[in-house]
C-alpha cells in the first residue's frame, strides 16, 4: 500500500528584476564593474556601501537615467521585453513614468518645488494619460494619504514644506501609479532622527500593505536593516557580499562588510 502525502506544491517564482554584469565608467573612473542583482516580486533589496561605491550609479541605471557601458537589465512585466538598456529615449520615459517609481535623496531632483504637492503627484498621472481633473485630484490625494501626508496641505508647494514632508510628496508621486518597482536613493539622508523614523515607518507600512518591490540605496545600515529582506554590499563599483539581511548583519563574511557592521556598532 502506498501512502500519498498531500504535500504543498512549490510554485516557481520568476524574479521581477534581473540585472547582469552592469559596468559603467566615467573616463578613467570605473563606477560599476560587473554588478549583478536579482530581485523577486515583493522583495526589498538594500544596497549599502560607502560614498563613491557606485550604489547610486547602479540605481540610476535601474531607473534608466544612465546607460551603462555593458550589461543587461530585464523586468518581468507584461509588454516589457528584452534588455531595457537597449530601449530608446521615448520607451524609457514611458516605462519609467508608468512602471518604475523613484524617490531621490534630494527632493529638488524629483519634485517641481514651486508647483503644488498634489500637482507633483498629478504630473505622473498626466504623463500616463489621465485627463480627468476630478480623477487626478482623487488619485493624488489617495497617494498623498498613503504616504501619510496631511491632506489639508496637499496644494502647498514643496518649497514651503519640511524635508520630511518633501520626501512624503516624492513617495506619493512614486507610488501614484502603483509601480512594479520602487527605487529609493538615500530617502532619509539629511532628515533628523525622529523624521527619519516616521518616513521609515511609512515605507515599511507601504511595503507590507502593497507588497511593492523595492530597491533601496543607503549608506545608513540602520535604514537598510529596517527595510531590507536581502542586502548587497558594494565597494569601489563591485559587489563584495550579498545575502539575507540578518545573515549579512549578524555574520558578515567579507572584511569590508565586517568593517561596516562594526563601524555601525
Amino acid at each position: 500500500m502506498t501512502l500519498t502525502l498531500d504535500t504543498p506544491q512549490l510554485v516557481k517564482t520568476q524574479p521581477l528584476l534581473v540585472a547582469r554584469n552592469v559596468s559603467k565608467s566615467y573616463g578613467a573612473v570605473h563606477a560599476l564593474r560587473d554588478v549583478s542583482a536579482v530581485v523577486y516580486p515583493g522583495e526589498v533589496l538594500g544596497i549599502v556601501g560607502e560614498s563613491g561605491s557606485g550604489k547610486s550609479t547602479f540605481l540610476r541605471c535601474l531607473n534608466l537615467e544612465e546607460t551603462p557601458d555593458s550589461g543587461s537589465y530585464t523586468l518581468d512585466l507584461p509588454d516589457v521585453q528584452g534588455n531595457l538598456f537597449d530601449l530608446d529615449r521615448y520607451a524609457r520615459r514611458m516605462l519609467c513614468a508608468t512602471r518604475i517609481g523613484i524617490v531621490y535623496q534630494n527632493p529638488h531632483l524629483g519634485l517641481l518645488m514651486h508647483h503644488s504637492s498634489s500637482g507633483n503627484v498629478a504630473e505622473r498621472l498626466l504623463v500616463a494619460g489621465e485627463r480627468r481633473f476630478a480623477v487626478l485630484r482623487d488619485k493624488a490625494s489617495a497617494a498623498l494619504d498613503a504616504s501619510e501626508f496631511p491632506l489639508d496641505r496637499m496644494d502647498a508647494p514643496p518649497v514651503e514644506l519640511s524635508g520630511g514632508m518633501q520626501q512624503r510628496v516624492q513617495l506619493a508621486k512614486a507610488i501614484a501609479l502603483e509601480p512594479a518597482l520602487l527605487l529609493l536613493d538615500e530617502p532619509t539622508t539629511g532628515l533628523d532622527v525622529s523624521v527619519q523614523a516616521l518616513v521609515l515607518d511609512t515605507l515599511k507600512r507601504l511595503q507590507q500593505d502593497r507588497r511593492i518591490t523595492m530597491v533601496i540605496v543607503s549608506h545608513d545600515l540602520g535604514v537598510i536593516r529596517t527595510l531590507s529582506d536581502r542586502v548587497m554590499v558594494m565597494r569601489r563599483g563591485q559587489v563584495v557580499e550579498t545575502g539575507l539581511a540578518d545573515q549579512v548583519f549578524q555574520d558578515p563574511q567579507h572584511a569590508y562588510t565586517q568593517q561596516l557592521v562594526h563601524a555601525k556598532l
Partner: peptide, 22 residues
Amino acid sequence: RQMHADADYGRMWLQLYEQIVR
C-alpha cells in the same frame, strides 16, 4: 525640442491643473 519630439506634454497639462487648483 526633445519634449516636442516625444510628445511629452505632461507639464503643459500640469500648468492647467495648477491654474484650476489655485
